[in-house]
Nucleic acid binder design. Structure first.
Lengths: 347, 347
DNA sequence: CTGAAAGCGCTAACAC
DNA sequence: GTGTTAGCGCTTTCAG
């Protein structure tokens, strides 16, 4: 690793001059000719800055702490982290990712991240819910991902749950379904509340009555299969909007047991259906892919914008081949899905 | 953040003394009484070391670089990372995780990790295969995870593929299956080669002939379903060993279309079957859970042992509630699965 | 315009 | 036994 000192020696200038030039603070301070020579040697020697040494003076490490509680329990955590990493990489940051199982070790992990000098934190949940931000995070720049701060103190990046459900239900209506069911989640959370409301509103806007006999909110466990089975028996739905892939699987299973074919006898729109299913077994299936990657990406941009006091939308410099959809605009999923940004109250 | 300087001032000693004490290098160098007072103020002020400042002198950051190529494309990446993080945390390290999509940005990401001063690297694949280690990693401590270095230069932590298949097949034999099929992967890789061999050997050890009409090696795509379907038709298997969950799903689907019940008409042992399936729909199913968490955990221990020149098995200090299985010994899965450690040739 | 000097928090020779 | 000193790589006054 070449250092500024080496560049200074080889160019015949002082370290301070090198520092000025290489940080682009040389306008009107260093002679262009000298600056050029410095840059040239830096180039030649393949200089890259040592962010750790820099941080000792500046107090900024360009490291971001990413806190997630269920990295291992869902297949979708990866998407968020990937997006966050790409954005961080494009913006010259690194991600220090930690996992907290419940709240037991959370404060420890946060303390460790602080020791490593992170400039800010992302606090990610794997399904949109209200979250209590640990006190220890209070004095740092912080963005919530797929969650909302219950206290309204911190900004967040989350999917537009209402619209997901509204669009999904509208599509089922458009497909000619008469009895559209919603298989939701019985835990209260933003994702569930927003989607139930979107489902209801889409029905009402189409001049139909909301009928709670068509709704089954279940957990992801044994009794769920029976509950969904009951839903089939009591309401004979011909269309299903499913909260997530696990819920959709109950529907597939119940349909299979009744000899009903997905895409022919019953229509299904699910959120985050596992690709193997959607593509291989049920090509008729309509899926809404939650914008995990985009959430991670935008959350990182947001966080960096807070840290550097820059405008959020100046920061979107995707390095990925596919263009990143703007916040609050349709993103490329099989059904439009919108990302929303919630500002903090105090913001 | 309190510094050594503050501790020194408050205790009335010099910074060097504080440093000696707090690094436990005070034996016979600092008076016990003084050492005790230093420790006491450190405690009182809640001192935690600044690893970045330390690294400037020592050249060691206690940061590990974790390189993975498909963090987002498989639900299992999380398990490996989680295990790696837990081990790192227990050993006083942090993980800097980067994702490389193919080889395009790999060298960039590696360079960045080096700039951040990582002490060593883990290079993880998401299914056991031969890997070409990038040259840029050559001069660092390195452990491969779920992969083997093609050049045999670097150590690796991987599952015992042969034994997975051997045990799975033996279980099917024990369950009374007469015509046991293997639904494998048509890409050549360690996982596939080892499992096919384990399957074959288990049959032979039971005095049966290997019959390639009972084997269908497929990709995870459209034609796969037809190939598995053909397997059903040509060989009428009553037992299946499946390479992974995607392969198992083809079997479920084919069985369902023929009115066959899993666990009654056909027995299935699959690797990494998705939990929702295994537990909710097919409780009769036997699954082999790959030890993802353990791989990440042991790989980290191995890497740290190389960095610190300590014995690997002194390092296993699991912080998790469940005890971590030793290397090369049965681990708690529904079928025993063994982890093996491959030493580097030069090691 | 450029360089010398101080210092971020810490470690490690080397004096005393 | 303990303190002084120098220095890791970098930024940032402040002289000149």
């Amino acid at each position: 690793m070449t250092t500024m000192k080496e560049i200074a020696e080889q160019t015949g200038v002082s370290v301070s001059t090198v520092s000025l030039v290489l940080n682009n603070r040389d306008a009107g301070r260093v002679k262009p000719r000298i600056a050029a020579r410095v840059r040239e040697t830096a180039q030649r020697l393949g200089y890259t800055s040592n962010p750790l040494a820099r941080s000792l003076r500046t107090g900024k490490t360009r490291i971001l702490g990413f806190i997630s509680e269920e990295i291992a329990t869902t297949p979708y955590a990866g998407g968020i982290i990937l997006g966050a990493q790409d954005a961080a990489s494009a913006l010259g940051y690194m991600l220090l990712t930690v996992n907290t199982d419940g709240a037991t070790n959370e404060d420890d992990e946060i303390a460790t991240l602080k020791r490593y000098g992170v400039d800010g934190f992302m606090y990610a949940k794997m399904s949109n819910r209200y979250a209590d931000v640990p006190d220890s995070l209070g004095d740092y720049p912080l963005v919530l991902v797929d969650a909302t701060d219950r206290a309204g103190q911190f900004p967040s990046i989350e999917p537009d749950e209402f619209r997901i459900a509204y669009d999904a239900t509208a599509r089922l209506i458009g497909a000619g379904c008469e009895r559209i069911a919603y298989v939701g989640c019985s835990e209260p959370m933003i994702a569930q509340d927003g989607r139930l409301e979107g489902y209801r509103r889409a029905l009402e806007d189409a001049g139909r009555d909301y009928d709670d006999r068509l709704v089954a909110n279940v957990l992801n466990n044994g009794p769920a299969l029976r509950d969904v089975s009951d839903l089939f028996d009591r309401a004979c739905p011909d269309g299903f909007f499913c909260f997530n892939d696990a819920r959709a699987w109950y529907v597939y299973e119940c349909a299979a047991r009744r000899g009903l074919t997905i895409g022919k006898d019953v229509s299904v729109v699910g959120v985050d259906n596992h690709r193997v299913f959607a593509e291989t077994f049920y090509p008729q299936l309509t899926t809404v892919e939650l914008p995990h990657y985009e959430m991670g990406y935008w959350a990182t941009c947001k966080l960096v914008s807070m840290i550097e006091q820059r405008d959020l939308h100046d920061l979107a410099l995707p390095r990925t081949t596919a263009p990143l959809p703007p916040l609050d605009a349709p993103i490329p999923a099989k059904i439009h899905c919108t990302l929303i940004e919630k500002e903090s109250v105090r913001g």
